[in-house]
Write a protein that binds this DNA or RNA. Structure first.
Lengths: 144, 144
DNA sequence: CATGTAATTGATACTTACTCTCATTAAATG
DNA sequence: CATTTAATGAGAGTAAGTATCAATTACATG
């Protein structure tokens, strides 16, 4: 059920196929994201690319979300965190201690959501599931 | 499965039992929340209470969240919305058009989450599920 | 490969959703 | 009703983003 985070091959190519240009800032941002297997914040990216404007960071993240290769998730307090997604539809685990993000997918979840539709007044158009965990590493490190 | 939104009796009493004082701003905020069965924003509350400081609105909402009577949820874009919760553990439906919030609870969801624990590397400490819908009213109004 | 043009960028100002500080005010308690 | 401690409001500050706009750059085209 837990998915090994294999990064998809050429993210810039995905954007180009959608008519977007291959620019230096975009390539730089994508390169950094590919190294971050456990989620990231916009600020983090900005810090690693001091020459790049804040707006461009946000614009690019937004673009990548539209392209389906990055998704946004919320920490318990609502703080945003982004994550490169290797697969189409999935959900996230977020460590409440270190913030690391993992992906998982479970067919049962999707079936359940669909079944829920019968009891909900309206049409289900999407869903979001976040599993808050203390990850193995944090458990080991601090003993919780 | 869908829960009629019966508001719990005396919210101020819950806070007092936890050692917090019954103040005019708190009573005013709670009174307004009790009228809002479909979610609200901090700004909305502020607008209805021009005499009350912004900080107090946020502090009170936070307090009510700690007390378990209000919960925060996120719209698709991450924008925050709050909702008075009538029952202990539940999840939310949010209309992507009008933002109205509903509650639901499903034992199957909880069982599923627990089962997922076996496949996740770490300890599950919480979860959040948001069902994005177009609510009946919006479907009728705009035909979607 | 020069070039026109449309997309993209960076700077900057603005917005939203908060949090922090701190002096003033008001609850509760004896 | 005096004390004391919590709570408030004002205001400044922060984090996460969006809007504007002139300058730059990508890229199709000749």
């Amino acid at each position: 059920m837990q998915i090994p985070l294999t990064v998809r091959p050429d993210i810039m190519a995905i954007l180009e196929n959608q008519g977007y240009r291959s620019t230096a800032p975009r390539r730089a941002i994508i390169k950094i994201l590919e190294g971050k297997r456990e989620g990231f914040t916009a600020e983090e990216i900005g810090n690693e690319l001091p020459g790049t404007g804040r707006a461009t960071i946000f614009r690019t993240i937004k673009l990548l979300m539209k392209a389906g290769v990055v998704c946004r998730l919320n920490l318990v307090d609502g703080a945003p965190r982004y994550s490169l997604s290797s697969i189409e539809h999935h959900h996230h685990t977020v460590c409440v201690r270190c913030g690391n993000v993992g992906e998982f997918r479970a067919a049962t979840v999707e079936r359940l959501i669909r079944a829920l539709g019968d009891d909900i007044p309206g049409n289900i158009v999407g869903h979001r599931i976040e599993l808050y965990i203390t990850c193995d590493r944090c458990v080991k490190d601090e003993g919780a």
